[in-house]
Amino acid sequence: MVSLLTISLLGTMALGFFGVIPPLKFYVRVFVYLLLIVISALYGVVSSIIFTLTGYQGLSQWSTARVFYFLCHHILGITVIIKNPKNLTIRPAVFISNHQSELDILLLGATFPKYCSVTAKKSLKYYPFLGWFMTLSGSVFIDRVNRTNALKAFEGAIKQVKRVNQSVFIFPEGTRSYSLTPTLLPFKKGAFHFATQAGIPIVPYVISNYSKIFSFKTRTFESGIIEVELLDPIDTTSIKAEDVGALCEKTRENMLAVVEKLQYGPQTPQDKKTK
């Protein structure tokens, strides 16, 4: 039988989840979010084995991403609106996006293209569940401490892109901004070197600032709508190595303009209640 303590704990968590006990809301919803990541990663491990054995490994991460978004959308009440979704079908390509927080995993869940792989720091390979899934689904791991290994990882990824016509996804900011205002951190050049060396287009997309929905700084985790706008693909076939820096800065300027245009995206239910 379920103990009284267990019932009380579950009841308290439920009250926190729905905001009846406001101080608990952020922490309970983060716990649920992490639980959904684990569930999706377990699904990803199993599905990646099946996709790999049937010759469709390139669909592993896309499939898991959609499952994760489906769960988060229905359980946490977060909806992602995508403008120009046709650009997600470009293949192969280097997809890049702004990087705000851990909630970006949910945004990838809604936008991740078919036949695409993430790049990730090598240490993630050893994480339970998530690392298992990423390894089985063909992720590219990069040792950021050792430049030689990082270059080898990119060389292998470029060969894979050309061999199986697969795209990659990279956050050019390199780290989460956790910004409460619509802005971008400086870009690193890795994604742009990758695209120019592979001779494939860069497809940027911009996520509206969602700090009113989720923020570690303010301990906010609400339901709401997040907007994503895909920009036109950037041809890199004529870009030389010495021009990568300029390409990087120009792309950042274009994305920053869209960040400032999107601002905080559509209103959240909480915003409407306060008006």
Rank of each mutant, 00 (worst) to 15 (best):
G19L: 09
P186K: 05
K125C: 02
T220H: 03
L184R: 02
L108A: 14
I234K: 14
Q160D: 11
T218V: 01
L230W: 02
I37H: 05
V94I: 15
V244T: 14
M13G: 14
F216A: 08
Y205F: 15
K152T: 05
Q197G: 00
F70C: 13
Y126G: 01
F17A: 13
A14V: 10
S137F: 04
A257L: 05
P85A: 13
L136R: 06
L231D: 07
T251K: 01
P113W: 07
Q61W: 04
L76K: 08
T119E: 05
R147N: 12
V164R: 11
V38C: 09
V38P: 00
A150G: 13
R219S: 08
L35V: 05
S179L: 05
A93D: 06
E155F: 00
H73K: 07
L184M: 04
F171G: 00
G109Q: 05
A257I: 04
T111N: 09
P269C: 13
F31K: 05
M13A: 14
Y264P: 02
L71T: 07
F70H: 08
P269A: 13
K212N: 10
I202A: 12
S40V: 02
G16Q: 11
L4Q: 06
S48V: 03
V118F: 10
K273E: 15
F17N: 09
L34W: 08
K272G: 06
C72T: 14
Q263H: 10
V164Q: 14
R252A: 03
C248M: 14
R66I: 10
Y115L: 04
Q270M: 07
F154M: 14
G190N: 10
P92Q: 09
L107D: 03
G58D: 13
Y56L: 12
I82R: 07
I50S: 02
K122D: 12
H99M: 02
A157R: 01
T251M: 01
A93K: 03
G138I: 10
D271R: 04
T111A: 05
K212D: 11
F171Q: 00
G109K: 01
E249P: 00
L36T: 06
Y27E: 15
C72A: 15
L76C: 09
